[in-house]
Amino acid sequence: MGLLNKLDAHVEQFESGNIIITTADKLMNWSRLSSMWQMFFGLACCAIEMMATSASHYDLDRFGIIPRPSPRHCDIILVSGTVTLKMATRIKRLWDQMPEPKYCLSMGSCSNCGGPYWEHGYHVLKGVDRIIPVDVYVPGCPPRPEALLEGLLKIQEKIRSQSLAKHEAKKI
């Protein structure tokens, strides 16, 4: 399973097998970053790249990232594409329905800052960070699957550095 490799430091293994000792943080973080379930929705052309990343060639499933149809199942929201003002209220609602801890990845120029619609797009929200907090921005128009994967790995890094106690403190 590679569990021992992933937990690396602070792991003690006994020769008789079946027993390991580690910290609660390490174990929690490992399990959370290995099953980041993804809020399943695409907004524009970035969604095509997101689907390509999910498909067998880039295979998001190997990171434990699988799309879910309900925000209540999800740990991460991939905002992939142009956020219109009409859609923005829906995204806010979906985000509010996701259980903590949750993460947001903004994919592509449109959801980072409005993209090509920054000046004359009367109907476009100029950056999804105006309504929900964003953890990682992936630049590109649209970003290649490799770029999206790197963004997801950045979120994994972020989860790896968290601790249960610190997370509680952050909430306040």
């Binding site: 003002l85 009367y122 929200l125 100029k126 309504i131």
Partner: peptide, 19 residues
């Protein structure tokens, strides 16, 4: 929106519209 004298609104539902 497509009228030539259209001015975009400052806020929509509490969201700032211009860049």
């Amino acid at each position: 929106p497509l009228r030539k004298d259209y001015k975009v609104q400052e806020f929509y539902n509490g969201m700032k519209v211009p860049y």
